[in-house]
Design a protein around this nucleic acid. Structure first.
Length: 519
RNA sequence: GGGCCGUUAGCUCAGUCGGUAGAGCAGCUGACUCUUAAUCAGCGGGUCGGAGGUUCAAGUCCUCCACGGCUCACCA
């Protein structure tokens, strides 16, 4: 049952179906199986970009290209078309009377967005544009739906994310973001691999969601008859591998957190985690500076980048601030006010930070950083000296066990990395886990009280003996945001999570409003 | 979940004080053998997100709902 509002759309689609039938009637295959491609638009440009017209005329070689028709300018018996392929675009020049087979009908019934194979020689048009003079054109696949307008593109944000294929087709900047994303990830793989890190894959489905504090997604395994959780972090598994003698490991994969969506949060997001035995958090800060500045140089050509209108210099060394100094510097709360829980709570609340009455001192400090300090940390900054009570997996400082050897890296007011020297004392780890379990707030809707155990298996693994190790997580999506100057995480995730829209087939064909069945 | 803003043709957008819904592109018909935002002539295309309400009259005002954006909360 087509909706009345789709009338115009249906009519445009019907036109295109009629054109498809015309090609069929002329003996052309509608969706032919194979067209042998012998060149690309970029290859032709590369080879003939500087060749003058008179020399092009002597080439005499035929090229076979395939791609999508993105512009069409017909002139009676001739036509110009822009053919886009994965490497770029080139202009096709067609004389109808030179076409073979069903070519004339194919050309006459061509629509914007059609996929075609074209064969011909090269020439330069009167205006000097390198073009392919087409002698054979084959419809490879019909585009039945009208594309968005040619110079405004597709702007509507919701439609862009719901119809990402169309977004990628008509908005070149979108494609560039995902090309950069792929290159960033490739760079990181090579960077870590060249330093002896082994890439591994650890469980996405875990019996106990560990390695972070976040509300997990739950699922059920039928054959095992048990609930499982989508992982919120791979941390505990990666450290098991370090115990197993894989001294340097990394994983780039998805984490899942059942929490709010925002311009900086998607329920599934990509995390790099890596662990290096016999290293400390200091070593990882140095490695992070080097990796990210090199990455920017490799991808953008410079360690000087611009993010949301602000220049940022990723060159080492980055700034370093203790958590308390960061608070004092960016909020004006005096250092001694941060010394005890009561005065810290009062000072933070005075500045509008939402806190619970029983929040611990460490938790107060961490929340103040998130709320008031993070927005100021535009230039790359390591915040260090986190409180032990908010860092259950980190190694305490030898000279002050109330603090841990931990850092978070902020760039462009985004939290990009979190790393620390790992706690490898199994007895202390058990105490921390138990304390975490005991201190949960049963009234907090985000706390899963069904989880009643600690990860004894992990403790047992630590008892085998984990070398002194440092580990770190880097949010890949946020890093890509930074290096592509993207304001929202949705711009750097191909299919960001959206609420399903009624009346559009999201999960399958023919979705319809639930209300249509009633009455 | 709260606040603010948005939703008009396939796409990008106008729509004044509440008084018969518009443009450009895309589409259709015709002309055109070098255009590239092709040009020229003509034509069609609307559940104004949905449902109620106020009114002689609602795209416009009110209420609720849906979806989205920003933001706050949440998120070590």
């Amino acid at each position: 049952m087509p909706m009345a509002s789709a009338d115009e759309s249906n009519r445009l689609i019907q036109n295109r179906r009629t054109n498809l039938e015309a090609v069929r009637a002329a003996g052309g295959a509608a969706y032919p199986n194979r067209f042998v491609v012998t060149s690309t638009t970029a290859a032709i440009r590369e080879r003939f970009g500087d060749t003058p017209a008179e020399d092009l005329a002597k080439v005499g070689e035929q090229f076979r290209l395939a791609g999508r028709i993105m512009a069409l300018r017909a002139h009676g018996k001739t036509a110009f078309a822009d053919l886009h392929d994965r490497t770029g675009r080139i202009q096709l020049f067609v004389r109808k009377d030179q076409l073979e087979g069903a070519g004339t009908e194919t050309l006459s019934h061509l629509d914007l967005g059609d996929l075609v194979g074209a064969e011909g020689g090269v020439l330069r048009t009167r205006t000097g544009e390198l073009s392919v003079e087409v002698t054979n054109i084959v419809l490879l696949a019909k585009s039945l739906r009208p594309l968005p307008e040619k110079w405004h593109g597709l702007k509507d944000v919701e439609t862009r994310f719901r119809e990402r294929a169309v977004d990628l087709l008509v908005n070149p900047g979108v494609r560039e973001i995902f090309v950069k994303r792929a290159r960033i990830i490739q760079f990181i793989r090579e960077f870590l691999s060249s330093r002896g890190f082994l890439e591994v894959e650890t469980p996405m489905m875990q019996a106990l969601p560990g390695g972070a504090t976040a509300r997990p997604f739950r699922t059920h395994h039928n054959a095992l008859g048990m609930d499982l959780y989508l992982r919120i972090a791979p941390e505990l598994y990666l450290k098991r591998l370090v115990v197993g003698g894989l001294d340097r490991v990394f994983e780039i994969n998805r984490n899942f957190r059942n929490e709010g969506l925002s311009t900086r949060h998607n329920p599934e997001f990509t995390m790099l985690e890596f662990y290096q035995a016999y290293a400390t958090h200091e070593d990882l800060m140095a490695l992070t500076e080097e990796m990210l500045s090199e990455c920017a140089r490799e991808i953008l050509g410079s360690a000087q980048i611009e993010y949301q209108g602000q220049p940022i210099d990723l060159s080492p060394p980055w700034g370093r601030l203790s958590l308390r100094d960061a608070i004092t510097r960016h909020t004006g709360i005096a250092g001694d006010a941060l010394a005890d829980r009561g005065s810290a709570l009062e000072a933070a609340r005075a500045l509008g930070v939402k806190l619970k009455d029983d929040d611990s001192l460490g938790r107060i400090l961490a929340k103040v950083v998130d709320a008031l300090v993070e927005p100021h940390l535009v230039q790359p900054t390591f915040v260090v000296d986190y409180p032990t009570e908010v860092s259950p997996l980190s190694r305490p400082r030898d000279d002050d066990p109330s603090l841990v050897e931990r850092f978070e890296a902020f760039i462009g007011a985004l939290e990009v990395a979190n790393g620390f020297s790992e706690l490898n004392d199994p007895d202390e780890q058990r105490r921390r886990f138990l304390s975490q379990l005991d201190n949960r707030d049963p009234d907090d809707p985000d706390v899963d009280m069904d989880i009643r155990e600690i990860d004894e298996d992990y403790i047992r693994t630590l008892e085998v003996g984990m070398p002194p190790t440092a580990g770190e997580g880097i949010g890949i999506d946020r890093l890509v945001m930074l290096l592509t100057n993207s304001h929202s995480i949705r711009e750097v995730i191909l299919f960001p999570q959206l609420r399903p829209e009624h009346g559009r087939g999201v999960a399958g064909e023919g979705g319809e409003p639930p209300s249509s069945e009633s009455a």
